[in-house]
Design a protein around this nucleic acid. Structure first.
Length: 457
DNA sequence: TGCGATGATTGACT
DNA sequence: AGTCAATCATCGCA
């Protein structure tokens, strides 16, 4: 009969009917609880009572134990079945009384008996505690966040203010030659560095708070182990619970940081936002190639590289340009006819001016897959690789007549005639021709003397 | 400010 | 992997 009474007293120390025997309250070997970072949203997860530790060290002690109850899922791990009641009503006096009662209990002659009983009970319930404790797998979302922060140069070792991100910035901008790129990237870097700084300082605060809180709880448990059996495993479990709580908070920080980086990225690095029209010269070069290879406007890899170099853009930008151009030309041939004429004349003139030394060249620069070098300053392959029926090159007068007789896309079909196409290009060429050469499309030399190299064979 | 032009992206296709 | 077609988002001009 005695034991239940003691148990009751033990579980609810504040109900202890024994009057205080010792006046000075037990000095607690606890450090003054640390101030917590002022991070409202994440810390809203923490038990409210935690904040009390700011103002009253000893109240803080109690409040922390209350926190542990909630951290342990309200199972009353430390004190039994019930958490400490609402602490807001605890006064200095009642606290002192409680401490005194506790001390009295510690010195009670029946304490060893009680302790052994508690040990027995614990022995019996130990299994259920153990079984309820499952190792949680690593949160995949946390892993994703960590990876992203690492990739963005926010987490991990300092790399010159996020050089990885700067590289990403350069890649995202397509390696263009925009003069303000470097300025914008430095702006991006500085903003990223800011985020990085905030992230690390907050993370540090969290970790510090976590460590201090853990120390606090460990001290509390050690203090309690004087009056009840506290197994090392229990302590470990408590620590892991605390760490889980704090890592949940950290995850929120990481999530917010990721969002901030994403916003920054989209603000600074989204290629669509940073779109700049190519220079007039670059567009001219591309158009020149396009219209001089109208029969097969599919530049080889080498040609693309050459074009990219000439235009000061990337190969993928060249590919984009040709992709867009093909589609838009096909969609509205009429609209591009004038443009085609202009470039045809340009090209033709440059051919005649450039002499005929290369007119006999059988390898058009654009003959994709042929490996031939691409020469833009020349006339493209349209004239170079296309002797007249009699084997002569085009004369200036022929060019002039070409200018007048040019149909939509017509000359290109002809001019590209002598090219050798790879199978893929054959397919592409077929598709392209089908689409861009309606019945009305004629070659510039259409008629009696027309050259239809594409199809004549 | 509206609108056409244009460079980039995306998903489907071969 | 390259291309097409649709679409997005920005640019540049009237």
């Amino acid at each position: 009969m005695l034991v239940p009474l003691f148990l009751c007293v033990f579980l609810r120390p504040q109900l202890l009917p024994v009057p205080p025997l010792f006046s000075p309250p037990l000095p607690l070997p606890l450090p003054s609880p640390p101030p917590l970072p002022s991070l409202a949203p994440p810390f809203s997860l923490l038990p409210l009572s935690l904040s009390l530790s700011h103002t009253h060290p000893r109240l803080g002690l109690l409040s922390l134990s209350g926190s542990i109850f909630s951290a342990a899922g309200g199972r009353g791990l430390l004190w039994g079945a019930q958490p400490v009641p609402q602490i807001m009503t605890i006064t200095d006096q009642s606290l002192d009384e409680a401490q005194a009662k506790k001390h009295a209990l510690n010195c009670h002659r029946m304490k060893p008996a009680l302790f052994s009983v508690l040990c027995e009970i614990k022995e019996k319930t130990g299994l259920s505690i153990r079984s309820s404790q499952e190792e949680e797998p690593v949160d995949p979302q946390l892993m994703r966040l960590d990876n992203m922060l690492l990739a963005e140069g926010v987490a991990g070792p300092e790399k010159g203010g996020g050089s990885a991100a700067a590289a990403a910035a350069a890649a995202a901008s397509g390696g263009g030659v925009s003069p303000d790129n470097s300025i914008e990237h430095s702006d991006y870097r500085s903003k990223l560095a800011q985020i990085r700084h905030i992230y690390h300082s907050e993370l540090e605060k969290y970790e510090q708070a976590c460590n201090e809180f853990t120390t606090h709880v460990m001290n509390l448990l050690r203090e309690q182990s004087r009056t009840r059996p506290v197994a090392p495993k229990e302590m470990e479990r408590m620590v892991s619970i605390i760490h889980r709580k704090f890592s949940a908070i950290q995850m929120q920080l990481k999530q917010s940081t990721c969002e901030a980086v994403m916003i920054l990225r989209s603000r600074f690095l989204d290629a669509r936002r940073k779109r700049r029209n190519f220079s007039k010269q670059a567009t001219e070069v591309l158009n020149e190639y396009f219209y001089s290879h109208l029969s097969n406007p599919y530049p080889s890899e080498e040609a693309k590289e050459e074009l990219a170099k000439k235009c000061g853009i990337t190969v993928s930008q060249v590919s984009n340009w040709f992709g867009n151009k093909r589609i838009r030309y096909k969609k509205n041939i009429g609209k591009f006819q004038e443009e085609a004429n202009i470039y045809a004349v340009k090209t033709a003139v440059s051919v005649t001016q450039g002499g005929h030394s290369r007119t006999s060249s059988p390898t058009p620069p654009s003959s994709a897959g042929s490996g031939g070098s691409f020469n833009l300053s020349g006339s493209g392959d349209m004239f170079l690789g296309m002797p007249g029926l009699n084997g002569d090159s085009y004369s200036a007068s022929q060019v002039e007549s070409l200018r007048h007789s040019m149909g939509p896309g017509g000359y290109g079909d002809n001019l590209g005639g002598g090219q050798m196409y790879s199978p893929r290009e054959m397919r592409a060429n077929g598709g392209w021709q089908e689409a861009v050469t309606p019945s009305s499309v004629t070659s510039p030399t259409e008629g009696p003397g027309s050259v239809h190299s594409d199809t004549s064979n």
